[in-house]
Design a protein around this nucleic acid. Structure first.
Lengths: 212, 212
DNA sequence: CCTTTGAGTGAACAACCGTACACTCAAACC
DNA sequence: GGTTTGAGTGTACGGTTGTTCACTCAAAGG
């Protein structure tokens, strides 16, 4: 089982490497096509392996898609950890959160793109997986919100509704940034301003909301 | 040019009919696949014509997609007309608007599904066409909002931001209704409740917003 | 050291794809 | 009434797809 570490790759390292290569290639292709229109052969061609070798790693393209969902939401969770680190002052928390979002969208562009596209895309299993993950994410946000001083009297349903509103606004923001003309900072800055204003509007609404 | 009206179809009537049949078939197929993964042959097979006949009506599947975008937003504009007809009382306007939305989503289900799926789908031209239409829609809503008494002092930018927030929430609501388990009224009613609450939160936020 | 394992190979398949081209034949036109 | 037009036909083509099957051959294991 255990061998002395040699310079050459161990067998499972090698396998893990091509698996990651497949995921990367698929994500790369899915940036301009949708997952449903992506062919197994296209992926293996880009990886540099023969089509049939694909099955050593995934039973189908659908399974590949589910793995990509996992991968994407792992990086998303990393993002929310960064947000939690921010200072809890109101004005700062808004600008900071949007900033973290924008930053993560930039260097996890492919993941966000994938989620945005496949959320309502052609592969049902992937669709429901994303919906489920997004729901978990929303629930997490709701419990975070519950800890804020102004919102501790809210019902859990109202918190969920608020979290849903925020998540939707943020998802739209992310999708806007992704499909904005690349590296034209004006359009992007406008989107960021909009996002910040919307969050502030939502917060103002929340502050004046009396839970029924 | 002009002939006496006979029982048989005129030539252009016939052409228009198969064109509509193509659009309907494509919309039907796109309900479970995405447009990018839809084949010309699949469509013509469902219509009952030979593949090459497709080109008499559309130069490509992309053009078909753009036609579908037009068709879909035509019905959406019809919806907004219905909303304008509603009474302007605050509580009523929210419940009424959500009601109209839900109703239209139900009997234009395929159109809404198509827009939701292709908004970030695999065909760039269709994507940008939808984005453009949605932007027009948003602008219309902003001018509608400007007529409300509480909002007449707002800057046009703030109105656009507010309209964007509302449209995003409504789009999410529509997508939620579409992908809710069909004809299970509980899930759908929960979505409707959420949508109404979110609109109310946004309105509360707007009411307490001082335009900068 | 010999055996087992399993990631990757390579050829072959049936099915489907988009599109080119020459055609029919009834309605539209002069 | 003869001619033109154009929606729809039928065949055929080269290319891509998913999946099968028997295979190699180096690392892992006893």
């Amino acid at each position: 089982m255990w061998c002395v570490e040699t310079a050459a790759e161990t067998r499972q390292e090698r396998k893990a490497r091509t698996r990651r290569a497949i995921l990367a290639a698929a994500l790369d292709i899915a940036d301009e096509q949708s997952l449903a229109a992506l062919s197994l052969r296209q992926v293996t061609r880009e990886v540099g392996i023969v089509p049939t070798a694909f099955y050593r790693h995934f039973a189908s393209v659908e399974q590949l898609g589910l793995a990509l969902v996992d991968e994407s939401f792992a990086s998303l969770r990393e993002m929310i950890r960064d947000v939690r680190r921010g200072n809890p002052e109101l004005h700062g928390v808004i600008r900071g959160s949007v900033g973290v979002l924008v930053e993560h969208v930039h260097d996890q562009r492919a993941h966000f793109r994938f989620i945005g596209r496949e959320r309502f895309g052609g592969v049902p299993a992937v669709r429901t997986a994303i919906r489920h993950e997004l729901e978990l994410f929303e629930r997490e946000l709701a419990t975070d919100l519950a800890r804020l001083s102004d919102l501790d009297a809210w019902t859990s349903e109202d918190l969920r509704v608020l979290a849903n509103l925020i998540v939707n606004a943020m998802v739209s923001t992310a999708e806007g940034i992704i499909s904005a003309p690349p590296e034209q900072p004006d359009a992007e800055r406008a989107i960021i301003r909009t996002a910040e204003k919307q969050l502030r509007m939502i917060v103002v609404g929340a502050a004046n909301w009396r839970s029924s």
